[in-house]
Design a protein around this nucleic acid. Structure first.
Lengths: 256, 256
DNA sequence: CGTTGGGTTGATCGACCTCAATAAAAGTGG
DNA sequence: CCACTTTTATTGAGGTCGATCAACCCAACG
């Protein structure tokens, strides 16, 4: 597993490492890097004042990992929490017989470590080169004890996650394959909007298999439905993503 | 909708109302009723000290509703939060075309109102005569602001819910009908254990349709699989529930 | 006693899965 | 830069699990 660590205050050129998708938390200064963090407004840290950010910054380590690197594994003790600053991460649970359920994808601004449990409830690995701010779970927990407003923010993020999980339950339990794919594309478009602004181009850093394992379908079914939506001019399949042509049609499929 | 309200401090005989499954928060004294609450140890309130309990008690109204009563509805403004003290509640989302996904069942000790959102994410109605402590969302939110340890408890409950929701995603996305039914029975057994202690008798206050809508199956499939499990001596179907005969077999089905 | 809501059972159907082959893309090492 | 492998995506043919449609039972209840 290829991982680069650097204490934020260290000055180290980024060398030949896999380039992050976004250049965040620049590592060449001894000043507060959170200042320049592009995802701060989206993430947990937005609940903090300037002096608190300094404290947080001292606790943080930025990490850069290449595609396929594992951030943490299901059932292992939870040592760290992460704030994703660039890239994309797959979150999944494995059944003993190898069946897999992807429970979510983390994008820049997403926080991994809402769970408050001793063991990781799922595994996480990078889909693309990924940057994150990492905190030891202890530091983070102590920090939380002193900052009730941060806890409130955290709780509100957890509630939001819960609500997304319930929406996913509807998708998995009661929707057809075509509706699932449409809901997935619209949902992902909405999430990218927070990071990149609203575009009809939706990057898909995950494989068809990942999408299938997220939607409770097989690769083949996902592939067939994507090509069908493309044939019917609802989308265009482009390298590493799709372009949405008939957003209204997709939204109708997703909501009804 | 048949609802009985009484300020806890009021003294009112319970009359001919649908009898609650457990007699909780007795209503005949002007003293602190939380003292005697059988579900306190299970619920949010357990995070509070004696003097805080007095405060909480003052904010609370106990409500008793009959079977089929609606506690709140999806997309309506969220006015109240509830602590279920007796009975059972169905939580569900409806699609515009009538398809339904049950996102959970609330049992005594469960808290409804983790979500922190302005609108209800789902509807809730009583499966059996149900008692609850009800708080106005405002009071509750203010109270929360003054009690960080309560917020912590709340957050930990929300995390737990999130984790259950993710388990449910695995069930809905990647398990066979038989595994779903087994997982449902084992899961419900475990939840009743917190309330009643561990018994092989598992009460099923919900209909087969409700179970189907929870598991992403039809009534017929649920019925067929329950009778199959009964024929194969894994369970016995009894009025209002099942008796588990071969717990090991069911657990194997549920976990593998 | 008719009515109603829940539960069970059977026959048939179809949406999605499985298996298989091929194509396209992305690495990898010379 | 090009052969070669590996991974990912697509497409087709056929099978299956659970859905659908329909009948019936039973208990509760006015």
């Amino acid at each position: 597993m290829e991982v680069t660590l650097r204490k934020k205050a260290d000055s180290a050129a980024s060398m030949g490492l896999p380039q992050p998708v976004l250049a965040l938390c620049p590592n060449s200064k001894a000043t507060i890097n959170c200042d320049k963090c592009r995802v701060r407004a989206l993430s947990l840290c937005d609940a903090l004042g300037p002096s608190e950010l300094v404290e947080l910054d001292r606790m943080a380590t930025t990490i850069s990992v290449g595609a396929k690197a594992t951030l943490f594994e299901q059932d292992q003790p939870c040592e760290w929490v992460y704030n994703i600053t660039a890239g994309s991460v797959r979150l999944y649970k494995l059944l003993p017989d190898g069946r897999r359920q992807v429970v979510g994808f983390a994008l820049p601004g997403d926080f991994l470590g809402l769970s408050m449990s001793e063991k990781n409830a799922f595994s996480a690995d990078a889909l693309t080169p990924t940057n994150a701010c990492r905190f030891s779970r202890n530091d983070y927990s102590n920090f939380l004890d002193e900052k009730p407003h941060l806890l409130r923010r955290l709780h509100s993020m957890a509630s939001h996650e819960l609500s997304l999980a319930q929406d996913q339950m509807v998708i998995l339990g009661r929707r057809t394959a075509e509706e699932r794919v449409a809901a997935f594309l619209i949902g992902l478009r909405n999430r990218w909007t927070r990071v990149n602004g609203n575009h009809v181009h939706v990057p898909l850093p995950m494989t068809r298999q990942d999408i299938g394992d997220f939607l409770g379908l097989t690769v083949e079914t996902v592939s067939r439905l994507m090509t069908r939506l493309a044939r019917e001019k609802a989308i265009v399949i482009v390298p590493d993503g799709v372009r949405l042509l008939d957003v209204a049609r997709l939204e109708r499929l997703a909501e009804i």
